[in-house]
Nucleic acid binder design. Structure first.
Length: 189
DNA sequence: CATATGATGGACT
DNA sequence: GTCCATCATATGG
């Protein structure tokens, strides 16, 4: 397996969002490796997407969205941090990682969250950042190197993919920009 | 299992 | 003061 490179993220945002399903998201935390299989994503565009954090234009907090692909964009909503990877062919765009299937470092991730069942560990965007110990300090970091705190490994497995409208947005576009693996029990509710 | 509701804090105007 | 790409809890089946 190899680390996904900048060229991988330099494609249309929705194409990359769909393509990321099944890939392995890894978080290096001190001597530990945490993470799992990406099972749910959402694509967000720029000035033509009213649900996007870039819709209102360049701000201090969202400037990573306007920079080159392959970096993390960490954004706060309510009390939680959202983990996004910047991806676009040109212009602006990012992908929200909404859920992963835990496979590596499960015991450590459980220490970060008091949950009874493993199903609840990372089945939501705010839940997985808690489990992976991700916060704003990682905003802007590169994901295209094994030395990065977070990176994504390629994975050959094939999955059936479903789509829907995005979850929780107040002004969605009239197209399906949420992607998830069919029948996977770690997809968010 | 499903749906409803209140708490929450960062960044905006 | 307002908005928000959420979550945990409580309740009913």
């Amino acid at each position: 397996m190899r680390v996904l490179q900048r060229s991988y993220f330099s494609r249309e945002t929705d194409v990359v969002a769909r393509d990321l399903l099944g890939k392995l998201l890894l978080r290096r935390l001190f001597a530990n490796l945490l993470g799992g299989i990406i099972v749910e994503t959402e694509a967000y565009f720029g000035k033509d997407d009213p649900a996007s954090r870039a819709f209102q234009g360049l701000k201090n907090y969202n400037k990573v969205m306007f920079e080159h692909p392959g970096r993390l964009f960490i954004y706060n909503v309510h009390r939680y941090w959202m983990l996004n990877i910047i991806a676009h062919r040109e212009g602006v765009g990012g992908i929200l990682i909404r859920a992963i299937e835990p496979t590596i470092g499960i015991d450590i991730m459980k220490q970060h969250r008091s949950v009874k069942s493993i199903k609840e560990l990372t089945n939501g965007p705010g839940k997985l950042t808690l489990a992976l110990n991700v916060d704003k300090s990682l905003n802007g970091s590169d994901v295209t190197s094994l030395d990065s705190p977070i990176y994504v490994l390629d994975n050959d497995n094939e999955y059936d993919i479903c789509t829907s409208n995005r979850i929780g947005v107040t002004k969605d576009l009239n197209q399906h920009l949420r992607f998830f693996i069919k029948n996977n029990k770690f997809v968010s509710k």
